[in-house]
Structure formats: structure tokens, C-alpha cells
């Protein structure tokens, strides 16, 4: 069994998440080759074959160019699996490669068994087992689902080029909004999710954060709705946190949120839905109406 792993490199840096692909290939027990649009001056700690295209020449991510580079490597390598991270890079590029090869794509896998892959669905509440019907299969693996593996060594480098005209042009990066709160250093975080119901209820969550001497956090829907500023957002597109205590108020537990807070020492979740995926990682799940339970808890702590 052979895998071609598509690593990530952005703005002059090899992304650490690339090593999760190596961890996945190792668990799969597959022979692997790695592809990177990166720099030979920054080789990954890896002893297999590395297909490398020069990022200085290629520029930042262009889907049409990267697709062609992957297809060129596929032709040389003839892999059973072409593996991406399920990231903004992976979910953008993987379907293009799959469509070109008319290969099955299975997205955001979290486990595998006997040629079948396990993926989350219905907001991570349920799982599906999926089998490819094609000989080559494109996979995207969920960030954090497979531990990173840095086996060390120096790769055997094979250079890759492609000449592509694309209707798409990269214009530049916009840095993340300035954080007025550094949740990464907070010891206690009390986060509001959609389950709080409305913007007017945010002060209730803030009151608990104050009573505990912590900071206010928020899930993505609450930030998108304009209830809480983005600088408080916890998750893949917000801040990654690891406080001593994380209180999730009315947060169902979408994967993107869990990825940002699952390393917390102790997780207390309050949710009226007993089956909410936050329950999978919470140390304590209180099945209750947030707007009834939280004020009562705050009053007791403040007393």
C-alpha cells in the first residue's frame, strides 16, 4: 500500500500539521512519499521520498498550479491513497485532484478499519463508515485526529515543476484581527455558545467569568452573529486555549471549537442536549438550560 501525503507550507514556513499526515501513514502501515510546495532550505524531518516544488517560484497557494503538481507526482508515484489535511488548503485542493483522477474522496476522516474510513456527520453527533469504490482514493484527515510523527532523517528530494495558467490570482494575506484578550494565557475561560439564545444573555455568561476570575470566550456562531467580538473566539479560526478550567455554556461542540479547547485541564459543559458532542470531551456535562443554571451557579460562587 502506497500513500502520497500532501504537506502544507505557507508564507515561508513548513506547517507543523504536515507531521500529522506522517502519523496517519504510519498508523495505516503504508509506504509513504511526501509532496510539498516549499523550500529545500527547510526540509521536513522525514526519511522518505520528498517531491518538492519551489515555493519561491510557485508563489503562495494557487489551486490550479498545486493540482497539476500533485497530479505530476501521482503519475510518478501511483499511490493508493492521496492524503491531505482537512484544512483550508486540503478541502480546497483535494476535490480538484480527486475530480481530475475520477477518484473517490472521503473527507475529514477520524479513524479507519479494513479499507473503510470513519467520518463525522450531523455536526459531529454521528459517524459514517465509508468505502471507496475507486482504485485510487483521495482522503482528507481531520486536524488533530492522528498524532503527529516526527521520525527524523533527511528526505530523498525529487524536484517537481509545472507550468499552468490560472484564472485565479493570490493578492496577499490579511493577518488575524488584533487580540485585545490573550485567551491563550487565561487560567479560566467561560465561553458562550449559540445555546445562550440571544445577545442580551451574554452578560450572564460574562458574570460567571467575572465571578470565577476568568475571561469570556465564545464559539464561532456567537461571534458571527455579532454577540461577542472575534477576539474572544475559541477554535480553529480563533484562539487555541488550554486553561485550568473551561466552562462551555450552550456550546454544542463543533469539531472546529473542540480543536481549540480540548487541551483544557478541566472542562465543564452546560447544555440542554445530552447528546451534544461537547459531552464527549467534557469532564462534567450538566444537562440543563444555560440561562437557568449559569445565573444560579454565579450567585452561589459570588456568595
Amino acid at each position: 500500500m502506497k500513500t502520497l501525503l500532501i504537506g502544507e507550507y505557507r508564507d515561508g514556513k513548513l506547517l507543523e500539521s504536515t507531521y500529522e499526515l506522517l502519523g496517519f501513514a504510519d498508523q495505516l502501515g503504508a509506504e509513504s512519499a511526501l509532496l510539498l510546495v516549499g523550500s529545500e532550505s527547510q526540509l521536513p524531518a522525514y526519511s522518505g521520498t520528498l517531491y518538492i516544488a519551489d515555493a519561491a517560484t510557485c508563489g503562495e497557494y494557487n489551486p490550479d498550479l498545486h493540482k497539476q503538481l500533485v497530479l505530476n507526482a501521482v503519475q510518478q508515484e501511483n499511490p493508493d491513497y492521496i492524503v491531505f489535511l482537512h484544512s483550508s488548503y486540503g478541502w480546497d485542493l483535494a476535490p480538484r485532484v480527486a475530480a481530475s483522477l475520477k477518484a473517490a474522496q472521503i473527507s475529514e476522516i477520524i479513524a479507519f478499519a479494513d479499507g473503510s474510513f470513519e467520518v463525522g456527520c450531523c455536526n459531529a453527533k454521528m459517524r459514517r463508515s465509508v468505502k471507496p469504490n475507486s482504485s485510487t482514493t483521495v482522503l482528507t484527515v481531520q486536524a488533530g485526529a492522528f498524532p503527529a510523527l516526527q521520525a527524523g532523517g533527511t528526505p530523498t528530494v525529487r524536484k517537481l515543476t509545472a507550468d499552468v495558467t490560472s484564472p485565479l490570482e493570490f493578492l496577499g494575506y490579511e493577518p488575524a484581527e488584533k487580540k485585545d484578550v490573550d485567551l491563550g494565557k487565561a487560567e479560566i475561560i467561560v465561553s458562550a455558545g449559540r445555546g445562550i439564545g440571544k445577545k442580551d444573555n451574554v452578560p450572564v455568561i460574562l458574570a460567571l467569568a467575572k465571578a470565577l476570575g476568568g475571561e469570556l470566550g465564545a464559539s464561532r456562531p456567537v461571534v458571527d452573529a455579532g454577540w461577542v467580538e472575534h477576539s474572544h473566539q475559541v477554535g480553529t479560526t480563533g484562539q487555541t486555549v488550554s486553561p485550568k478550567l473551561y466552562v462551555a455554556c450552550g456550546i454544542s461542540g463543533a469539531i472546529q471549537h473542540l480543536a481549540g479547547m480540548k487541551k483544557s485541564d478541566f472542562i465543564l459543559a452546560i447544555n440542554k442536549d445530552k447528546d451534544a458532542p461537547i459531552g464527549e470531551i467534557a469532564d462534567v456535562l450538566v444537562v440543563a438550560d444555560v440561562m437557568q443554571f449559569v445565573p444560579a451557579l454565579t450567585a452561589k460562587i459570588a456568595a
Partner: peptide, 21 residues
């Protein structure tokens, strides 16, 4: 179809967490 769903099921309960009602 290029892929087939063979099963739809809830995640295996990891246990450990306390559920209070």
C-alpha cells in the same frame, strides 16, 4: 457513485465524563 456509506451510527462513548441531570 465513487464511494459507498456502509454504516451510520453514534460515536462510541468514551466514558469518563460525568453527566449530571
Amino acid at each position: 457513485a465513487l464511494s459507498t456509506t456502509t454504516s451510520f451510527h453514534p460515536p462510541a462513548k468514551k466514558g469518563g465524563g460525568i453527566v449530571l441531570e
